[in-house]
């Protein structure tokens, strides 16, 4: 039996590693990868809360399942935007995007 605190500490660590990457990196794809880390830590928390605190119910299970689908869609659209930005500005750094209209 794994103590429930271990899972909380693991997901908090993962969340703040992703936060650190999001704050420090200036490459659009690297920032998106950091967002994936943050989403994964949230998913771990949903699954753990459901499994250990409320076994017998399935709310957290389905929430993390749907969150996976939403993050897949979000990644697809964000990568489309990044490719478009690169095509127009020839750079993939956030500093190069100064106004929203090309």
């Amino acid at each position: 039996m794994i103590p429930v605190e271990f899972f909380f500490v693991l997901s908090a660590l993962l969340f703040f590693i992703g936060f650190f990457g999001f704050v420090t990196r200036r490459n659009l794809i690297a920032m998106l990868i950091s967002i994936e880390l943050i989403l994964n830590s949230a998913d771990i928390n949903f699954a753990v809360f459901n499994r250990i605190l409320f076994p017998g119910q399935l709310e957290g299970f389905f929430f993390s399942l749907f969150s996976m689908g939403v993050s897949a869609a979000e990644t697809a659209v964000a990568i489309a935007i990044i490719i478009n930005v690169y095509r127009n500005l020839h750079s993939d750094q956030v500093n190069s995007i100064e106004n929203m209209k090309f």
């Binding site: 993050s71 897949a72 990644t75 990568i79 690169y86 993939d92």
Partner: peptide
């Protein structure tokens, strides 16, 4: 299947396409 199979492939394609 979703993350490792789909999203990582998407990232690798985007990286190869971008810069």
């Amino acid at each position: 299947s979703i993350y490792a199979g789909g999203i990582t492939m998407l990232y690798i394609f985007a990286i190869q396409l971008v810069s």
